[in-house]
Nucleic acid binder design. Structure first.
Lengths: 205, 205, 205, 205
DNA sequence: TATGAATGAGTGTTCATTCAT
DNA sequence: AATGAATGAACACTCATTCAT
C-alpha cells in the first residue's frame, strides 16, 4: 500500500536475496550439475531458507532457466566486438576469443551449457539459449566476411565451417578456463597458440 | 565346487551377463547422464535383474568407473596411428581426427567424459582416465615432433600447445558428432575444414 | 490511544475485514475442504494480507471453528418455526424442511459439517456445534409432541427416533441441494416426495 | 524364472502385504480424510516401509482409487437382494437397508464416499463409483416396481423420488453407523423406526 | 493496524542398495 | 548365481505461521 523508503528497503533486501539465490544457483549448477545440485544446498549457500526459493522461482527447472538466460546474456554481451575493433577483423577475432575465456574463468555454469551437458537434459530450456549461440556464430561469420572483403582474410575461406570452428574453440577454451582442470590447464601460452592458430587459418597468405 | 563343462558354461553365461550390463550402462549413462540413469533401467535394458548388478559391481559409482575405463581404452586404441601412417605425420593427424569422430559417433558416454560433464561428477573417477588422455596428447606431440624432424611441419611450432589444441579439437568434434545436435550439425564439410585448419596450422610454409 | 470518530472508523473497517475473512473462509472451506483450503487463498479472496488473518484468529483451526459456529447459528435460526406455524405441526415440519434446503443451497460448508466430513477432521471442533444440532432435533421432537397432543400425528409415534430421522433427512437433502451433484439432482419433485414421506410417516391414519 | 512353492510363498507374502496396505488405507482415509491421511502413516499401520507402497500403487491418488473401488464393490455386493427376498418386496427393502448399515458399521471410508466428501476432491475418481450408486438406486426402483405390480405397494407411488429417498436413507444410516458419533448414535430402535418409516411410505393402505 | 517476505517442518515420491529366497 | 520384494534416506515442493517493517 505504502510506497517509500521503508517499502524500498524491504524490496531492496528482497532483490538482494533473489540475486544471492541466483548466484548460489550458478555456483551449484556449475559445480554439481542439474541433478547433483539440491535446492537445499542452493538455499543454504545463498543464506536463505528452503522455501524462499519458491517465492521467486516456480521450481528447480525455472531457477535453472533463469540462471542460464542470465549467464548466456552476460556471455554474449562480453563477446560483442568493441567499437575500435570494428574495422580490424583479426583483432576482433582475437579479442573475442580472449574475452570469452576471461569471462568463463569467473563464471560458473556456462561450461555445462556449452557442452550440452546431457545430465542437464535441457532440450526445452537450452533451445531458448541455442538461438544466442547461433547469433554468436553469425557474429563470427560477419567478422570473417568483412575480413575477406578487406582482403585481410583468405578469399577461399569456407566461412560457415570456419565460424563453427572458431565458435567451438571459443566455447572450449572458455569452458576449460573455468573448469581449471589441473591435468589440462589453460596457460597463457596455450591461449596465444590458439589465437595464432585461428589467425593462421583465416589470414590471407 | 564343481569343475568341468557345466561350471564352464555357467561362468561363460555369467561373463555374458556382465558384458550385457556394461553395454546397457554405456547406453544409459551416455543418454541420460549419471544422475538421470537409474540402476533399474540399466538392469532392464541388460535383461537381468536389479540385484545381479551388485554381484559384479560394488555400486553405481563403480559401474560407471568400469564403463568409463572401457570406453577410454577403446577410444585410445582407435586413435593409435596405423602402420602406414607412421612416416606421414600429416596423414597421421588427419586420420586420427577422423577416426575419433567416427568412434564417438557410435559411442555414447565418451562425449560426456570428454567434456568433463559436471552432471557426471567425475572428479575422482576421471582422474583414473586422465592418464590416458594425457597419453593421447603425448601421442599427438610425438607425431608433431616427427613432422618437425622430417621438415613437414613448421620448425618453430609450439609442440605442447599445438598438441593441446589438436587434442581439444579431436574431443570437441567427436563429442558433437555423437550429440548430433540438430542446431549444430557436424557436416563432412566442417570436418574437412577442421582438418585443413589443423594442417594449415602445423605445416611448414 | 485515540478515542473519537477516527478510532471508530478504524474499528469499523477492522470489523469489516474480519467479516470479509469469515465470508471468504466459508466459501473456501466449503469448496475445498479443510486441508484443501489454504490460508493464502482465503486471505486473497478476502482482499487482505496473509498475516492479518492471525490478528483475528489464533490459527487455521480457530478460523474454522468460528466459521462453523456462525454457519450453524444461521442455520438453526432459519429453522425455527414461524409464528403462524406454531399450531399447525404438519406445516411446521414441512416448512422447516424446505427452509433448510433453501438455506444450504446458498451456504457452503454447512453440508460438509452435516455429513461429519472426515476431511474436516472436526472431532473436537464440531462437538461445540453438536449441541446446536441436538437443539434442532429437540425442536423437531417438540413439534412432533404437539402434533400428537393435537391428534394430528399418530399416538404411537416413536418421537425420539422420528425426530432423528427427520433431522437426518433435513440434513441430507439440504446438503445435496448445495452439493448440486449433476448425477443426483435434488428436483422439486423429490423435495415434494420427501415431504410427503415425512408427513405420511407421522400423521395419524 | 522358477515357479513353485518357493516363488509361491514369496508372492503370497507380497499379496498379503498389498492387502495390508489396502486395509490400512481404508482405515486411514476413513478416519483422516484424503488430505489428512499421510502415506507414511498408512505404510506404518500396514507394517511396511514407505517405499513399498509405490510398488503396488502409482501414487496416493491411485491407492485411494483402488480402495474406493474395492469398498463400493463390497458394498454393492452386500446390497443385492437374496434369493428368498425376490418375491417379497417389503422384505427386500428392509433387508437391503439392514445389510447396508451392518456393512458400513465395519467398513471405514465408505461414509466419506457416500457423502461426497469435498475434502477428497474426487470428482474424477468417484465418477467411476457414481455409476454403482446409480445402479443401487435402479435396484431399489426395480423392487418398488415389483411391489406395485404385486399390489403390495401404493399404485400412485412416485418411483423415482422414492428410490432416491430410500437410497439416501440407506447411505445416511450406513454412514452414521460407521461414524459412531456418540452424540448421534444409531440405535436398533432408530433402525427399526427408519424401516417402518420406509415401509409406511410405500405400502398400499 | 496491516503487510508480505521469510521460515522450516512436513508431504509425496524416487531410487540405490540389501537380502530372503 | 540370480531374483525382485523390500527398505529408507534423500529429494523437490507446500503451506501454516512468524516478524521486521
Amino acid at each position: 500500500m505504502e510506497e517509500g523508503p521503508v517499502a524500498g528497503r524491504r524490496q531492496e533486501q528482497s532483490e538482494r536475496r533473489r540475486q544471492a539465490i541466483l548466484a548460489a544457483a550458478r555456483r551449484c549448477f556449475g559445480r554439481d550439475g542439474y541433478a547433483g545440485a539440491t535446492v537445499a544446498v542452493i538455499a543454504e549457500e545463498a543464506g536463505v531458507s528452503n522455501g524462499l526459493l519458491y517465492q521467486f522461482f516456480r521450481n528447480k527447472d525455472h531457477l535453472l532457466e533463469v540462471v542460464l538466460k542470465d549467464v548466456v546474456r552476460d556471455w554474449v554481451r562480453a563477446l560483442v566486438p568493441r567499437e575500435d575493433e570494428r574495422d580490424r577483423p583479426s583483432l576482433a577475432l582475437e579479442q573475442m576469443f580472449r574475452r570469452s575465456v576471461s569471462f568463463c574463468a569467473t563464471n560458473p555454469l556456462l561450461p555445462a551449457l556449452l557442452s550440452s551437458d546431457p545430465g542437464l537434459q535441457l532440450q526445452r530450456i537450452t533451445s531458448a539459449s541455442a538461438g544466442r549461440l547461433e547469433a554468436h556464430r553469425a557474429l563470427i561469420a560477419e567478422i570473417l566476411e568483412r575480413g575477406i572483403t578487406q582482403g585481410e582474410f583468405r578469399a577461399d575461406l569456407d566461412v560457415a565451417s570456419s565460424a563453427d570452428l572458431i565458435c567451438q574453440l571459443n566455447s572450449d577454451y572458455s569452458r576449460r578456463a573455468y573448469a581449471a582442470d589441473p591435468d589440462f590447464p589453460v596457460t597463457p601460452a596455450i591461449i596465444d597458440a590458439v589465437v595464432r592458430f585461428i589467425l593462421d587459418g583465416v589470414r590471407a597468405r
